[in-house]
Simulated scan of single mutants.
Amino acid sequence: MDHKSLPNSDELVSTLKRTNLPTIVIEGKDDVFIYRWIKQQLSTSPVSILTCGGRNTLFKIYDRRSEFSDKNVVFVADQDSYIFEGVNQDRNDIIFTSGYCIENDIYSGSGIRSFLDTEDCNGYELLKNIVCAWFAFEVETYLDKKQNGLDAPLQVGTHINRICPPGHSSICPTYSHEINYTNPKPEIFTMILENYGIKLRGKQLFQMLSRFMSKKDRFSQFSDKNLIEIALKQGGNPYINLLAESIDSKLNF
C-alpha cells in the first residue's frame, strides 16, 4: 500500500468509533500476519486488527481513546527505543513487546537459532558482534542526543548488508564513514551483545540468520521472512504466549 493512501489518525479514530468488534490496534501492515496468528490463540472471537501505518499514528490514536471509550480496543506496539529509556507513563496502558520489537519476541522464544549449520556458527558469531557494535553505537548516539534535549529518532533501520556486506569481517568502511562510526562505550556494547535476542532489532536478527541459511550450497534456503514464520509457528513461545495473554486479558476486561 502506498503511504499516501494510508488513513490518517482522524480516519482511524472514526473507524474505531463505528466498530462493533473487539479491535487490536497495531503499528504496521508488515506485522499483520503475526497478529493474525496470535489472534488464533485468543479466547475472544471475532476480533478485528487495525493497522495504523506507524508508531506515531498509533500513539496519536491512543491519546484520543476517550473518543471511543465505549469500544473494546487494545493497543499493541513494539518497545523500540523504550527498551533503553523506559516506557512513557502516559502510555503505560499500551501492551508492549518484551523485546525491541515483535520479531525479537518471536526470535528469543523460539529455537530458530539452532537451525544454523555447525560450520556457519563462527561466521554468525562474528557477524553478530559487528552488528551489535553498530547497534550499540546508534543507541549511544540516540541517548546522548536525548540527554542534550534533541528529539531525534533511533536510526537502526539499516539492512545488515550495508552494515557488513557478505564476505566482510568488519563494518563496511563506506557505511562507517557515512555515519561517522566510532566504537561504542564498552558497557553499552556489552549490554546489547549479552541480551542481543531481546535488544538488537529483531529484523536484523533474522537477516543475520538468513545470510547463512540462504546460501546456494545449502540443502534448503530460507529468507528472513521464511525464518520469522517458522519461528512464530513453532509454538510454545513464552514471549508470544505472554503477548497473547495480555491482549486476551484486556479484551475481556
Rank of each mutant, 00 (worst) to 15 (best):
S114L: 08
S114N: 09
L116H: 05
L116A: 01
D117S: 03
T118I: 13
T118V: 14
D120E: 14
C121S: 03
N122F: 08
G123M: 07
G123P: 05
Y124H: 11
E125G: 01
L126V: 09
L126M: 04
I130Q: 06
W134D: 11
F135Y: 15
F137D: 10
E138L: 00
V139E: 03
E140V: 03
T141Q: 08
Y142R: 06
D144H: 03
Q147M: 01
N148S: 13
G149A: 06
D151F: 00
D151V: 08
A152C: 12
A152K: 15
P153M: 05
Q155T: 10
Q155F: 00
Q155K: 12
V156I: 15
T158Y: 01
H159Y: 09
H159S: 11
H159G: 04
I160H: 05
I163W: 11
C164F: 02
P165F: 01
P165L: 03
G167E: 12
G167D: 07
H168R: 13
I171M: 13
P173V: 07
T174N: 05
T174H: 06
N180G: 06
N183V: 08
N183Q: 12
P184V: 09
P184M: 04
K185L: 14
K185Q: 14
K185S: 12
E187I: 01
E187C: 00
I188K: 14
I188T: 15
I188D: 07
F189H: 10
F189V: 11
M191T: 13
E194M: 09
N195C: 04
Y196R: 07
Y196Q: 09
I198N: 09
I198P: 08
L200S: 11
R201T: 15
K203A: 09
K203H: 15
K203N: 09
F206K: 04
L209R: 08
S210T: 14
M213T: 14
S214L: 03
